[in-house]
Amino acid sequence: MSRRLLSLLALASAFATAQGVRADDVQVAVAANFTAPMQAIAEGFQKKTGHTVVAAYGATGQFYAQIQNGAPFEVFLSADDTTPAKLEQEGKTVAGSRFTYAIGTLALWSAKPGYVDDKGDVLKKGGFQHLSIANPKTAPYGLAATQVMDKLGLTQALAGKLVEGQNITQAYQFVSTGNAELGFVALSQIYKDGKVTDGSAWIVPSSLHEPIRQDAVILDKGKDNKAAQALVDYLKSPEATALIERFGYAH
């Protein structure tokens, strides 16, 4: 084979790879509480479609500020339903792409086995120093936690014991390190394959708080990326919804 032909072949194969990579990536901003399911979803998504998810995990408010300022995200999986709606109003999204991908479940959790009973009576009994929640001003799970305490008539009694994590990950961290005896976390953080993985927990009935709707939306930057639409389609597929439920979300 001539040398010229060889280099042509090399050039052609380099082109093919480069093009493959470019078309296949989708940049996704994902709410911190959805980290574990997203990793599983990304795996399934890649197997099924060949596209790759490039995910950034973080706080919804921060993502909002970053998207406003030109962040390269193409799909946004929010921790709430207000932020995607806000972005939609501001014309930063692909019209009609907004949908609820998961409904969060709240859990009262302690790292100690047997500490939290399955009715949450431990909240009324007291005897603990710190109750960890996510910041109610910025985190939907934190807001839901305050609604639960309100509904149980315990807001006053527990006010002096509250410690706030900036997000649900930190609320979990305070409890898992034992610094807070118990706390309101996302069930998805302590749940796998249909059961609580460690410690003790009360799965809070959804009647005690407003639904924690987590909405997703395709952003402006993703409007010409086939992989972005494919990811959204995949999130709605029975395969993905079953997986999401296994991580402790309703649908």
């Binding site: 706080a59 408010g61 921060q62 909002y64 500020a65 910041n135 001003k137 910025t138 900036q166």
Partner: peptide, 11 residues
Amino acid sequence: SVQLFDHVEAM
């Protein structure tokens, strides 16, 4: 600094 972070997070 935390109060400031709160304000930004809450938009």
